[in-house]
Each structure stands twice: as C-alpha cells, then as structure tokens.
Design a protein around this nucleic acid. Structure first.
Length: 437
RNA sequence: GGGCUCGUAGUGAAGUUGGCCUAUCACGCCUCCCUGUCACGGAGGAGAUCGCCGGUUCGAAUCCGGUCGGGCCCGCCA
C-alpha cells in the first residue's frame, strides 16, 4: 500500500511503498540521495546499491517513480525519517531536461514573468510556486466556510450572455451560432435576481474584461467572488459582512499557513476587527495634505491614493484593510443606490482597499422598481431594451433592500502573499498578450 | 489608447562611452571521482551566429533606422 511522504515517519522499521516524482538527486559516489515529491511534499530516499542508482541514468527531474524500501528513523534526514534499501520502479521515464529549474525558487522579476508563464506547466511543480496555489485554495475554502456559516447559498450563473447591458468594463464579443454573444463581465444581474430566491447568495467564477489594461493588477480573465444579500437595514450591513469575511479569511490564512506565507516573504498581518472607513472626499483631503499633490478635483481615487491611504490606515489605525466610502455620483451605475442623506451627491458604494489596491466594491442596490427606471433614463439607458427585461421582472415581483460586493480573488491572493503582480497568483493568467498555456 | 523601458546559451545574470568578445559567470545538462547530502563537493565537456532586418564603420552584442516580442506606469477597471 502506498505511504505518503509525510507519513513515512509513522512506519519506522517497516517496509513502505512511496510513489511520486523525482524532485532532486544527489550522487555521492557510494551513496545517493533522492528527493521524491508527492502531494504532501518531499521524502528522502537513500540508495547504496549501484544497480538501483543505474536505473536513473539518463532520467530527469519529473520522472515518476515507485519506491519500495524500509522506513528508517534518521535525525540527519529532513523530517527525521527516510527510506533505506530502496528498490526503484520507473513508472514514467522522463528524458527531457526541464525548461526551468523546479528545485530552487523561480525568478518573479517582472522582466522574467514571460518565461515563468511560458514554462508554467513545469514551473508550477516548483514547491515555492505550488505553495501560492495551496494558499489560494485554502482562502477559497475559508471564504466558502464563512459564507455558508452566514447562510449564503452558492450559485452558478451563465458566462455566455446575449449582450452587454451592465455597463462599465469592456466586454468580449464572440460568435454564438451566428448571433453575437458576450462573455460576462460580472454576474451582477443574476445575483440580484437570485436574492429574490435565497436572500443570500454568492458565486465564485471567472469574469471577463476586455480592457486594454497592461498593469500589475489587471488580467482579462479574473476570478470574482460575488456576494449579494437581501433584507439589509442599510449599507452598513454590507460593509460589516465583507469586513467580517475578510477578517475571518485573513486571520485563518495567517494562522494555518503562517510558515508557507513566511517562506514566500509575505508581510506580517496588521489587521483590526473593525476596518477603518474614510470617505473618498476625506481621502482626497488627507492625500493632498500628506503629499502636496492636489487630488480634491478627482472623482475617483487615483492608484497612488489607494496605496497611500492603505499606508496611512496601517500607521494611523493599525489596519491594512480600509474602506473608501461615499463615492461621488459621477461614477454612479444605474443599479446602485444614491445616498439619501446628501440628496444623492454620493453613492452608497464603498471600495475595500488592501495593501495598496482595490480588492472589492461594495454597493447597496436600488431596489425600488420605479426609482431604478428613473435612474436608467437619467443615464440615457433604455429600460425597454430586451437585455433588461428579465432583470427588471425580478424587481417587479419584489426584491428587498439588498447589497453585496464584487470581490477580486486574484488581487486578494496576490496581496495576501505579498506578490508584486496579480498574474503570479493565477495558475494560467490571461492578459492582452497571453492566451496560453 | 498615451508615456517610459527592456530583448545576450535551457534558466538567471555580466559586458552595451565600438576594437582587449575567438562573448564572461552561476544554475541546469553530459562524462568521471566522491558513503550523510539537503543550493553537496571536485575534475573535465557540450551548449549563444548577443530577438530579427537593414544602415554607419577598416571593425557592431555595443551606434542609427525599422520591425517583432516583452515589461512598467497612466487612463479604464476587480
């Protein structure tokens, strides 16, 4: 029966079989050390028999092996145990040299990212690389845990759409049996519709953005966590839910993956249970006073302001996550609720910023049918357009006050680990220049 | 879409004010030596027409023009 690398120390003195990939070989003449990689990590195999070593002649890292030997306690071995008197079976021989090295950290310099992604298929076997995605997987699990604990229902909505009606980001167009279709830029309409069914829903799915952005924080296929919740008392409820979720996920990630995060040079976590909140106008003022660059005429936050306010909140509030609230009505979308307290000068929408970038937008929605029709018309949008009919039907048949967020998983993982580019947090990233692997 | 920047063995880098470059180093690869390695060590070896095209020059990895392919920032956005 197969024993996993991490379990070998539990079979001291017994014969064990391990299966995995040849990760490293060190030949010291009469003694050969092999590192075998399986899903749990590495185990060391010591071989003295020259005929056994000879089986590996001409075989490269990546060769799939089955090894039978004796589990032996050995303080000099990594993990305190190793396999002796091994006999090797080559399951899948590999004769091609790997295009990049997988037993040492890979270069993540921006100049070398192209090589990193060109060789992604093999490079992901690098243990530092796979750690990133183990942490990502764990975070996704924590998000789901939190949301299930709060009675959210996970949904799946279509990514092939008849047309772009939501507005905002550029959309991809494609041929759909002779008709034009688009790829979903977000599940916005569907998740709101589903509030009418389950009150609380979420989806983790790709969203497609055809923007010609070439920065360290943009990709054309992004994994979004979309949340929508009904029967909220106000915008506060949305912010609190997102805040509690992020606190839960980050705390747990640092608690359970601290060693991996440290080995990836992730920054220490500076977080409070209650995230500081600043209005966009306050941030403009603070930034202008703090840097001497006047941004008070800006409608949105500039990338540098996002960085700056995160630094400010870290120092001033002891928290690396911060909400920017009360966005001005210039960036209002028709389905968002205007702030009744200031006569609609600002929107009941906030951005969650974390370690310098926007991670999520968290608006309250306009749930009154008549009010929304009014807001559509005010923006020159035709409510009679067939693309809106199903969406509006849900409102006609009753949607409670609701709100939610669009949350960028890739950016979140990038910043949690302290990576420099969103693409490093994605297995096979898609951007304006890359469609493969 | 705008601005800036980069391109040298499989990988990462040095050289880039023209000649010392017949292009250097490290990792990886091949051969041999090595019984406790864990970035093993030692000896030797193969591997690059310096992204591509053209120009200037006695002479170009190096200067100029074009072209292709990257990267970073802004705008837009998650």
């Amino acid at each position: 029966m197969r024993v996993l690398s991490s379990e070998v120390s539990k079979f001291i003195g017994k014969s064990v079989v391990v299966e995995g990939w040849l990760h490293k070989k060190r030949l010291l003449g009469g003694l050969t050390f092999l590192n075998i990689r399986d899903r749990r990590g590495l185990v060391q195999v010591v071989i003295k028999d020259k005929d056994e070593v000879e089986k590996l002649r001409g075989l490269q890292i990546g060769t799939v092996l089955r090894i039978e030997g004796t589990a032996t306690e050995e303080p000099r071995a990594p993990g305190g145990a190793e396999i002796h008197d091994a006999s090797l079976t080559v399951v899948v021989p590999v004769t091609d040299e790997p295009p990049i090295e997988i037993d040492k950290p890979l270069s993540h310099k921006s100049d070398n990212l192209d090589t990193l992604f060109d060789n992604r298929v093999v490079g992901l076997r690098n243990l530092q690389e796979s750690k990133i995605f183990a942490i990502r997987s764990a975070c996704l699990r924590y998000f789901r845990e939190f949301l299930h604990q709060h009675e959210f229902v996970e949904i799946n909505t279509p990514k092939l759409l008849a047309g772009a009606t939501e507005g905002g980001a550029e959309v991809f167009k494609l041929d759909y049996f002779g008709k034009e279709a688009t790829l979903a830029q977000s599940p916005q309409f569907y998740k709101q519709i589903m509030v009418g069914v389950f009150e609380r829903v979420f989806e983790i799915a790709p969203a497609y953005r055809a923007e010609l952005s070439a920065t360290t924080r943009h990709v054309s296929e992004v994994t979004m966590l979309d949340i929508e919740m009904g029967f909220i008392k106000g915008h506060e409820d949305v912010l609190n839910m997102v805040q509690d979720m992020v606190f839960y996920v980050l705390s747990k990630a640092y608690e359970e993956h601290g060693a991996d995060l440290k080995s990836l040079n992730a920054p220490d976590l500076t977080l409070q249970e209650k995230f500081p909140r600043y209005t966009v106008a306050e941030i403009h003022d603070l930034y202008t006073k703090g840097t001497g660059t006047d941004t008070t005429k800006e409608k949105d936050l500039t990338p540098d302001e996002e960085k700056w306010i995160c630094e400010y909140a870290k120092k001033h509030d002891g928290c690396e996550a911060v909400f920017a609230t009360n966005f001005p009505r210039e960036v209002h979308k028709f389905y968002q609720m205007l702030n009744p307290e200031d006569g609609g000068e600002t929107i009941l929408a906030a951005d969650l910023l974390f370690r310098g970038v926007e991670i999520a937008t968290c608006p309250m929605r306009e749930h009154h049918y008549d009010k929304m029709i009014e807001q559509m018309k005010a923006k020159g949008i035709d409510p009679e357009h067939p693309g809106f009919s199903h969406y509006l039907l849900a409102f006609k048949h009753g949607l409670p006050p609701h709100g939610g967020c669009g949350f960028g998983i890739d950016r979140f993982v990038e910043k949690t680990i302290g990576l420099a580019n969103i693409k490093e947090a994605i297995l096979f990233p898609r951007d304006i220049n890359r469609l493969a692997p």
